[in-house]
Amino acid sequence: MMASIQKNPDRLDFEPKKFNMWIFIFTSFMFFAALTSGFIVYSGGKGHGLNVIMPSAFMYSTAVIILSSGTLFLAQRAVKRSQIGAQQLYLWLTFALGVAFFVIQVYAWSVLTYKMNVYLTDPNASRSFLYIFTGSHLLHIIAAILLLLSTLWGTYRKVPQARNLYKMQMTSIFWHFLGIIWIYLYVFLLLNQN
């Protein structure tokens, strides 16, 4: 029975599930595309520009998230070489950078609110969009951190190599995507800050 199943690659293997992740990324992309299009329609139609110089915290968070993609890449390379110890180290590093990104984003909100007087409930909704963009991105980051922790947990429970690799790949697709989305949002905000 096993043999006949192995010949059928269509049967419950990981490829379709990885494909699921790619499609999910599409849906997520559409969500952010809709938000930014909404921004364009709003600010273009009503003549409400953003008029906010982006706090420098965003620059640091951008650096952190790019760095985290790097450590995750190293973790994945370690899996392919079956170096569990190195994989765990790099995953912990990625986790720390992910949390750091989260903290810096929240710090950026406090700078925006308390130092720059840019509020979520601003009568100029372009400024509310700023919070919506970063907030919904952070929700995704929470999900990505949970996925990362589940992969990390798996390495301690010594799940089989194939499954470990699969979970690493799922985590990587999602994590790198969120990095790209953040860069997209940041560039979008920089271009529209006047």
Binding site: T27, S28, A34, G38, L120, T121, A125, S128
Partner: peptide, 19 residues
């Protein structure tokens, strides 16, 4: 996902005071 984006903004208008 586009509907979700629209609904998220609506929820903020309803409950968080954005406009």
């Amino acid at each position: 996902p586009v509907l979700v984006a629209g609904v998220v903004l609506l929820i903020f208008d309803r409950s968080f005071g954005t406009s």
